[in-house]
Design a protein around this nucleic acid. Sequence first.
DNA 1: GCTTGATCTCAAGTTACCTTGAGGTTGCAC
DNA 2: GTGCAACCTCAAGGTAACTTGAGATCAAGC
Lengths: 146, 146
Amino acid sequence: MDKNDLLPIGELARRTGLAISAIRFYEDKRLIAPYRTMGNQRRFLRSDIRRLSFILIAQRLGLGLAEIEEQLSTLPQGRTPTQSDWQRISRQMRSQIDQKIALLSLTRRKLDECIGCGCLSLHKCQLYNRDDRAGTKGTGPRFVLD
Amino acid sequence: MDKNDLLPIGELARRTGLAISAIRFYEDKRLIAPYRTMGNQRRFLRSDIRRLSFILIAQRLGLGLAEIEEQLSTLPQGRTPTQSDWQRISRQMRSQIDQKIALLSLTRRKLDECIGCGCLSLHKCQLYNRDDRAGTKGTGPRFVLD
DNA sequence: GCTTGATCTCAAGTTACCTTGAGGTTGCAC
DNA sequence: GTGCAACCTCAAGGTAACTTGAGATCAAGC
């Protein structure tokens, strides 16, 4: 492996837009595992740029670092991930986006149904009606959202 | 105003599924402003259930409590919000959902373009290519995402 | 070989969003 | 009028995702 292929942390930070502290933090959380020089400085692979890209994208989709770690842990250890490794993980992300869109569409539909009466209950006004009927007994609606 | 229309905090918690501590916390953050009994206990309006519903829904859409407070502050003070007050605010929420869906669709489209090569850069592989060409000078791509 | 910018570790701080606990008070039913 | 569940305040703790600061070390050019 060519030495020029290894990036110091500052370079990686510049390339990804992340703060150096954030990258170190991610290492702490096992999202990334750089080599070390004899002097204990971190050296990253080029492919780590993509790894960090993945983290940024996945975060945007609302995943927590723990979940992201889970996804990343399916990448091969010891070697730079191949194109098809990334493809596999990209496709999974795509289906997560699909799910998110579906959920939002559902929420929108429910909301539309409620705009008519302004109840905001997301339950076809059941909550609203129940309140109006002064129903104080029974467990009542515990969760406004599914 | 009928006394029976006022709910103690425990009741509100039961009805919304929120923890009592969370409701008190929201009061702290000025998201809700209950009356007090002479003995200093909180008493909520029925319409506060909807207020809390709104908070829960808006949070799901990714709004922070501060932003939610901003929306809620447009509700009339001193009186129970009317149907059309809630309608106005619901419609605004709807457009926020629309925006969110649009953003996700865009992300999905970009991702699709990238799955072909597995680069994950969301920039039509520019990042990937640049790396492969060992371009170490220039500022380089600072932000992987828009 | 020396200087200087980049890097290191480790502890503590930050913001958002709450929960938990201690210690005390209220209010309703009997 | 008493008991006890439900309520109160205030301070501190918890988690996620980082940042900041102190004090020390590394690496690369001159």
